[in-house]
Design a protein around this nucleic acid. Sequence first.
DNA 1: CTTATGCTGTCAATCAAGTGTCATGTGCGT
DNA 2: ACGCACATGACACTTGATTGACAGCATAAG
Lengths: 245, 245
Amino acid sequence: MNEIRATQRSSTNTAPRVLVVEDEAALSLLLSYNLEAEGFIVERIERGDEAELKLEETPPDLVILDWMLPGVSGLEVCRRLRARDATRTLPVIMLTARGEEAERVRGLAVGADDYVVKPFSIPELMARVKALLRRAKPERIAAQLVAGDLELDRETRRLRRAGRAIHLGPTEFRLLEHLMEKPGRVFSRGQLLDSVWGMSAEIDERTVDVHVGRLRKALVRGREKDPIRTVRGAGYSLDETLIRG
Amino acid sequence: MNEIRATQRSSTNTAPRVLVVEDEAALSLLLSYNLEAEGFIVERIERGDEAELKLEETPPDLVILDWMLPGVSGLEVCRRLRARDATRTLPVIMLTARGEEAERVRGLAVGADDYVVKPFSIPELMARVKALLRRAKPERIAAQLVAGDLELDRETRRLRRAGRAIHLGPTEFRLLEHLMEKPGRVFSRGQLLDSVWGMSAEIDERTVDVHVGRLRKALVRGREKDPIRTVRGAGYSLDETLIRG
DNA sequence: CTTATGCTGTCAATCAAGTGTCATGTGCGT
DNA sequence: ACGCACATGACACTTGATTGACAGCATAAG
C-alpha cells in the first residue's frame, strides 16, 4: 500500500510551493501577495473540486484551505487529502469563519495541521505557514536565524547575543525576526507595519521608531555595536556589516 | 516528524511501523493521521483476510485490530497471529465496540496485548501504542524522560524532582510528558489541547493556563526554579535551560 | 445508598507585561 | 546654523497570564 514514500517530487531546489484554495477573491489575492513576498511560489484556486485536480497532478508543499468552498467543501478536500498516500502528510492550514465552526475545526478529526480563524492577521498566518513548512522541510525554512553574534530561535522563541539570553516582547521579537530574515535590506516603516503588525492602517508610523528603540535597548549591552541601522528618510535594516566583520 | 521515509524493510533503524486494520474509513484515517504525526509509519488495511497476507509478508511492529471486520474477524486474525512463531509476540491492540465484558475477556484470551473500547480518545490510544512498543522495542521509545532534575517514568507513571516523588493528576502528567518530549519547544494552547486533551475536545484555551498553574504548584517546592516557561502571546514550553545549567 | 475524595473545567478578580502616543530632546544632512 | 527626521522617556491603556473559588463528575469508601 504505502510502501516507499518517494521524496515529494515537487520542489527540491526551488522555493516552497503553496496552494491557496479560497473563493473570496480579495482574500485570495491578499494571501498570495504576501506569500510571494516571503519568497513562496503560490497557486490560487477558487473551487474545491478544481483543487482536487491540482493536488493530484502537482502536489504543493503546503495547502491553505478555506472551510467554505464552492464545489467541494474544504473539509471534504482535506479528508480526501488524508486518504491518499501521496498527500497524507501534506501540511494543511484551514481558514474558518468566526463562530461555532471555529472551535470545532480542532475537534473535528479532519486532520488539518493548523487552523486560523477569520479575520486573522497576515503576520500570524505567515508564522503558521513557516512553522508547518519548517516541520515538513527543515532544510528549507530555518528554525534558527543567525546574524553575527545574534541567534534567534523560532521554535524555542529564544534570542541570544554573544551567548547571553535576551528577552523580548512579542512585537520586538517579530520585528527582529523580520529584519534578520533579510539582513541588510532596508524596510520602510510602512512595510514593517504591514509585515510585523499586520493591521497597518490604524497605527502611527512613528510607533515603529519606538519599538526599534526598545529593541536596541534590549540588544545592546555595554560597548556592543548597534545591530540595527537607521536609514534616514527610508527606514531600518539589520546592519549587515555585523555579519562579516 | 514527517521526514522522508526510507525503504520499509522490517524496521531496524527506521521509525516503528504500525498496521491499522479497520473497515470504517473515517476511523482508519483518523488513526493513521495521528500515528504518522507521532512519527510512525502506518499502513491501512480494511479487510481481515487482506491483513493476514500483509502480516505474513511484512510484519509491522504493532497491529491495531478492529473487532468487527469484513472477511475474517479481528478475533480470528489475532488468534492466527498467535499461532505463528513469526508473529507470536507481535503487539496487538484490539478495538472493540462499547459494551460487554465478555468480549473483552475473549479478546484477551485470544492474546491481544491491550484493548480499547470505542469511542476512545486519541491521546489514550497513542499512549497505549507507545506503551506496547516500548515493551517490545525499548530502544525505540524511551520509558524515562529526563530534563534537569525532573525524571518522568511512563511505565510506572511516576514523577520525581531532585529525588523526591511528586504526584500529578492524569492531565497534568500528560501535559508535563508532552512538554518534556521536546524540551524548550514552545507549544501554543491550541497545540496542547490537541495533543494532551485530544481532538474532539471543545475546551476553552484558558483551561490550559489553569493546568499549567497546577502543574507548577506541584512541581515547585521552596526556592526551586519554575521548570515551565510562559511565552507571552505564544504558549508554554519546558525551560530547557534547566537541562544545562 | 450516602458520603468522602480527587480531578477537571469555567469564571472572575487580580496582577503583570507589553503597547501606542505624545512631548521633548538630539543629531544628521545640507 | 537650520530644519527636519529620528530618539527617547514618561504615561495611560490594553491585553494576556495567574490565581483562587466553585460546581460537576466520577470513583472509592463507609
